[in-house]
Design a binder for these strands. Structure first.
Lengths: 146, 146
DNA sequence: AGATTATTGTTACAGTTGAAACCAGTTGCA
DNA sequence: TGCAACTGGTTTCAACTGTAACAATAATCT
């Protein structure tokens, strides 16, 4: 006999994960969009540029750090450069590469958005007790190791 | 002084959640696509139709159960009806409503895909020990209650 | 050196998505 | 009854996304 045990979507883990992730991302993305005219991908690029600011990094390094593909990175960078939040210099020694850095305006956005991002995370974690917070990190480490 | 504590994307929870959810969904979606020419949204609609098969349900009820918006449901249904996996009857008494049911072909797909979905879930949970499995469900209940 | 292969980044195209406008039908209520 | 507000569902438009093709440069190999 055929298996017609109904699949209860609302208890199905991959489904619940995607609902949760979408809700969280949507909420954050909308805020960044409205307040800073900044897409999620642009923000991720900025966060990486801020973090690896040293000598400036290339687009493909950004792609590596963000798990975004190079097309997405290229487009996000085009937007950020147009908005003068990022400058693109040529790499001396390798003319294919660009060397990317936040501008002062870029840093200003970053310094506003980064605490906001942390605040979002705190709000999320605030709904869990200490045990579950630790468990969540452990679970993510196992299911999606970095 | 400005807050330039770098945001470590790979430890940032909303980011990690979206990475995990995307990986899981992508893997499943690709399989459904390749083997059954079925999109994720179409599958979700089918799962709901299977579960609430009684007298047939309407598109907006499907939207309610799946947390998808009505446009997405409308499009998924158009595909499913075109593929003869779902039939659309008129509701007697309310001409706006449609009454949706899986066809025999629809049920056949369902009966193949449902166990596959469960298998995906088992694989995911198989990476966790019993404690973490329970914790994950608890966490989802708190962060994204149904 | 010269030919082949790999890498960086952009562009083009097609498919997907979400928001808003829209149409048809129904409900509420003066 | 008649009109306004609402609901179910589709269409439209613009933005976004992924894949593949591409140009330019660099590295490899003989």
């Amino acid at each position: 006999m055929a298996d017609r045990t109904p699949l209860e979507l609302e208890r199905f883990l991959p489904y619940r994960l995607s609902i949760l992730s979408n809700r969280v991302s949507q909420a954050i993305a909308r805020e960044y969009q409205d307040r800073f005219d900044l897409s999620m991908t642009e923000w991720r690029v900025m966060a990486v540029l801020a973090r690896f600011d040293g000598d400036g990094i290339s687009a493909s390094e950004v792609a590596g750090y963000t798990e975004m593909d190079k097309v997405a990175v290229s487009r996000a960078l085009a937007g950020l450069v147009a908005a003068k939040r990022v400058v693109r210099r040529a790499h001396d020694g390798d003319k294919r590469r660009s060397v990317l850095r936040l501008t002062a305006a870029g840093w200003k956005i970053h310094d506003t958005v980064a605490p906001l991002a942390r605040e979002h995370e705190r709000t999320l974690l605030g709904q869990l007790d200490a045990d579950d917070r630790r468990a969540l990190v452990r679970i993510l480490d196992k299911l999606a190791p970095v």
